[in-house]
């Protein structure tokens, strides 16, 4: 498979695969409640084999927290990216295919959303609605759908001139059906190429929200762990550094894997 031929893509997929595996297996690997006390407080990493990454200020197992936190990070990252790609493709397809006033209105709305930093939007939304997993997902998507919308619209503008779209009109197909069944699927590849960047940004936004205490309070998150460690940063820096490294690795993995997919599909296009 061309996808795995580049070493960077291979590395990216290896990281993601390991992360996904760990996240999926978290309840088996660490069946105990990760928020319960597992040992003495502030045990340094690599001191005790049963608590390899040490404990936090309440004596909770850092590795267990990290592994359970991976679930939230990946879940929120993927769900937010999927939501923004769906919203963006629908908006971009309607704007590009139907054109006219609707296009004007939708693109002005897109502009408006794009001028506000995504993180501020997410922050405002969660502050108003209150933190919970679906709210966090939607809040992140709120700041991320404009990119997919623009790319989808540009692609739809070129596809709607193709003969097969005229052909669909010629058999009497309804315009909305043409937009979503004939045009959108063919406009999707360049939109999906954005997904790695969006997932990576979503993971970071989720961490930032949690860091500010706006994550789902019932879940362990890496951002929350970093925030907790920050209060005793000088005394126990590993409490912030360990989830920080996990975050960087995740974003790196998503990004490298995404690059690999884009390269492989470009190579396929050249050959086809």
């Amino acid at each position: 498979m061309t996808l795995l031929r580049t070493p960077t893509a291979l590395l990216g997929f290896a990281i993601l695969f390991a992360l996904a595996l760990v996240a999926l297996l978290a309840p088996l690997l660490f069946p105990a409640d990760p928020l319960s006390i597992a040992g003495p407080a502030l045990l340094r990493p690599f001191q005790d084999a049963s608590l390899p990454l040490g404990t936090d200020r309440l004596g909770r197992d850092v590795l267990a927290e990290l592994v359970h936190g991976a679930r939230t990070s990946l879940l929120v990252g993927l769900a937010a990216a999927a939501t923004s790609i769906i919203i963006g493709s629908v908006v971009g397809t309607l704007a590009g295919f139907l054109g006219g006033i609707l296009d004007e209105v939708l693109m002005r709305v897109t502009d408006a959303f794009q001028t506000v930093p995504g993180f501020l939007l997410a922050l405002a939304f969660v502050s108003v609605v209150g933190p919970s997993l679906p709210v966090v997902v939607f809040a992140i998507a709120l700041g991320a759908w404009t990119g997919p919308a623009r790319v989808a619209r540009a692609e739809v503008l070129s596809i709607r001139e193709r003969d097969y779209v005229a052909g669909a009109r010629a058999i009497g197909m309804h315009p909305l059906k043409i937009a979503f069944r004939e045009v959108l699927p063919n406009a999707l590849p360049p939109v999906l190429a954005l997904s790695s960047v969006i997932v990576a940004a979503a993971v970071l936004t989720e961490a930032a929200l949690s860091f500010l205490g706006l994550g789902d309070p019932n879940r362990i998150t890496w951002g929350g762990m970093i925030a907790e460690g920050r209060t005793i940063l000088r005394f126990a820096p590993y409490l912030s550094i360990i989830p920080g490294i996990a975050l960087v690795l995740t974003v790196l993995g998503v990004y490298l894997a995404g690059e690999g997919v884009v390269e492989a599909s470009a190579a396929r296009k050249v050959r086809a």
């Binding site: 193709r162 003969d163 097969y164 052909g167 669909a168 699927p185 063919n186």
Partner: peptide
């Protein structure tokens, strides 16, 4: 153009 006239997917 038969290559353009039908949805390739």
């Amino acid at each position: 153009d038969p290559l353009a006239a039908l949805n390739p997917r």
